[in-house]
Design a protein around this nucleic acid. Structure first.
Length: 203
DNA sequence: AATGGCACCAACCGCCGAGCC
DNA sequence: CGGCTCGGCGGTTGGTGCCAT
């Protein structure tokens, strides 16, 4: 509320980025590296909010972005990770090299949700919808078996939706011990392709 | 051929936590 | 130790394009 806006609202562009704005942003970051988002727009000569610049860079302009269709492998990985982590899109994105949290979030909301529903799986709880409904109807006890449906691969074994509003937390995964060895081709974060949260591609 | 509805992607908003002064 | 600033995250909205009727 009393929070100051991230930048002066006046004289800042909003909406879609123009090619010229993109070029300015990329040029500036190539020259100075990431960071200092608040002062970046002014320094780069952009009429944009710093947050907007950061978002544009991270979600669209970064050179290591993959973009394009998600593979079935990525699909499954996202489903599994979501099962473990809930809506922690940034964490999920960290396991998918070249993907951004925003992209994954969108993909989840458009494709995967639908896919799971088609399978009769509740995308929130990863349980069979029938069971979920029963759970809702008779929410007296929370000890029905964890009918957790996982897609083809199921590396984790320990069940329990990480985020579970209507879930009994007793069986929830202890976040601290989640084994996040799930990943596509990065056994453990190879330096060759830094995770999205890496400090800066240039320095 | 035109209109309406649906799906998808990009971007914005507000909140929270970490770090610094 | 407390307050302030900045960066980051998740949720939500708006705009555009495609498909069906």
């Amino acid at each position: 509320m009393g929070r100051s806006p991230c930048c002066e609202k006046a004289h800042t562009n909003k909406g879609a980025w123009t090619k010229e704005e993109d070029e300015r942003l990329v040029a500036y970051i190539n020259a100075h590296g990431e960071g200092g988002w608040r002062s970046l727009p002014k320094a780069a000569g952009l009429q944009r909010c710093g947050k907007s610049c950061r978002l544009r860079w991270i979600n669209y302009l970064r050179p290591d972005l993959k973009r394009g269709n998600f593979t079935d492998e990525e699909d499954d990985l996202i489903i599994n990770l979501h099962h473990l982590l809930g809506n922690k899109w940034s964490l999920i994105a960290g396991k998918l090299p070249g993907r951004t949290d925003n992209e994954i979030k969108n993909y989840w909301n458009t494709h995967i949700k639908r896919k799971l529903l088609a399978r009769g799986v509740d995308p929130k709880t990863h349980r069979q919808l029938a069971v979920a409904a029963a759970h809702q109807a008779s929410s007296s006890h929370g000890n029905e078996q964890q009918t957790v449906v996982r897609s083809s691969c199921s590396p984790e074994g320990s069940g329990g939706a990480a985020h579970s509003s209507d879930d009994d937390d007793s069986a929830a995964v202890p976040h601290g011990s989640i084994d996040l060895n799930l990943s596509l081709n990065q056994p453990s974060q190879q330096p060759s392709s830094p995770p999205p949260s890496s400090p800066s591609p240039i320095s």
